[in-house]
Write a protein that binds this DNA or RNA. Structure first.
Lengths: 253, 253
DNA sequence: CGTGCACTTGACAGCTGTCAATGCCGGTGG
DNA sequence: CCACCGGCATTGACAGCTGTCAAGTGCACG
């Protein structure tokens, strides 16, 4: 609901002024709400729209021929959903609401307009896509290279970092509206094993989890388990196109 | 060396005319060659440039604190290297030559110019980034959700599909300039186990590998092992910005 | 013809998955 | 207010996939 949250991903790379916020708004369609568990986009659907997540958490997952699912990512407010599928004829992933959510659809047509009318916003969107690639890369590293406990550690740290990006006030204790089997599906292990991993994290005084609430007890050791450094976003890249017209606006963020 | 190969990724989504090819060329710096094993970009370096891979194969990998490596992707001619790191202050991955390679650097500054001067090329680059996200997503699915043999199957199919994209003549037998430990690192298993997987693939008459050459014996079962359908790129998305000036040029691809 | 690197193979351990049962908690309806 | 119920978390026993270690083989290259 926090209006700023909806554009965090854009303002993360550079200031965005009021004009641009207005322009972003014109790109998006009306707001739509989904209840927990509802599907926002299904695998195999033609990829016609993207969605700006305004409020709530969603997950995107992919389904194997045998019905097994692999969760790819959880989305937080401000994330743009469905962009990867723009490259394909059919959507790759199924996006569903983990909590009650509010989204605004972003018709692909408006992407074309944005590239023509506002190169700077287009470049920011491009950077968001690259940031997502880094997220996926880190996930691959974790899943491919770490034992179960490290995968969970990496996941928790990644989500925490992303939460903190839109709300710097988030501390070492935060709400995580996922079930243990969601986490299992995200890091590619079973629910049972996930449970054992959390028990060990608690025993070792590294992190605890109860009632959908995670508490980091020893972030240092959590990072050791994850084995990768935190990622720092590049602020104000020098190559970004400049704001085109209407000077003198107050910058946001 | 095939000049067309260098721009496959752009022409995959829509026709690109001579003007645009020229414009792409102006974006890139001089050609540079690397020997097998050389590092093109190192983790932690400031992310200043991207590279257009003209010829040869490269790999990008990420290193954990304990020195373990996870390979993320192999790059084929036409791929743009180093884009994800544009979102960060420091490069995420190390890119090294798997074979002798030729690249042209693409200074980031030229990205900004392209977004301003040619929205259509910028949008194509945006689509390339989304396609890469799909590749990463499929890799995550394979690594997170499949046993070793399925991961290898998925990898072989993915590489084959990408090869075929720039050279439709590629058949069910193709060169794969990787060592078994490269494949191991790519799919997150050990060399020893990779070896056993290949033995089983051959025993079962599914695929064989020798002398850096892969042969698909039963593509149907290979796909079953991978568990995911092939991905079809979206051709000529209706929302793409149109070519701006200089009409009447012959379209390429 | 020797050397080195990569590929193979075998034995074994350990992480993780599977199956099945139990416990916990919040929500719902009587 | 209480009993029931369903979803999720937890536990134990066990199997199996995959990793580790170590040795041996084969091929390419000098």
């Amino acid at each position: 609901m926090n209006p700023a949250a909806a554009i965090v991903r854009f303002t993360a790379f550079a200031g965005v002024d009021m004009d641009e916020i207005e322009e972003l708004k014109t790109l998006a369609g009306p707001m739509k709400r989904y209840a927990r568990g509802e599907t926002i986009q299904a695998e195999g659907d033609p990829a016609t729209d993207c969605y700006l997540l305004l409020d709530g958490w969603t997950a995107s997952n992919i389904t194997f021929a045998d019905g097994t699912r692999q969760m790819l990512k959880v989305h937080l407010p401000g994330d743009v959903l469905g962009m990867p599928s723009l490259a394909l004829t059919h959507s790759v992933d199924t996006i569903r609401a983990l909590t009650p959510v509010a989204v605004r659809s972003m018709p692909v047509r408006s992407f074309g307009r944005m590239f023509e009318s506002n190169p700077r916003l287009a470049a920011l969107l491009f950077l968001i896509a690259q940031e997502e690639r880094v997220n996926l890369i880190d996930r691959i590293a974790a899943i491919g290279g770490l034992p179960a406990i490290g995968r969970v550690a990496a996941l928790l740290l990644q989500i925490h970092a992303r939460l903190k990006r839109s709300d710097p006030g988030v501390g070492d204790c935060f709400e995580l509206p996922l079930a243990q089997f969601d986490i299992a599906e995200l890091v590619g292990i079973t629910t049972v094993h996930t449970n054992r991993v959390f028990q060990q994290l608690r025993e070792d005084g590294i992190a605890s989890w109860s009632r959908k609430e995670v508490r980091f007890l020893d972030k240092e050791r959590l990072r050791e388990l994850a084995g990768l450094p935190p990622r720092l976003l590049r602020r104000d890249p020098s190559w970004l196109p400049r704001k085109s017209e209407a000077p003198g606006q107050k910058l946001r963020a």
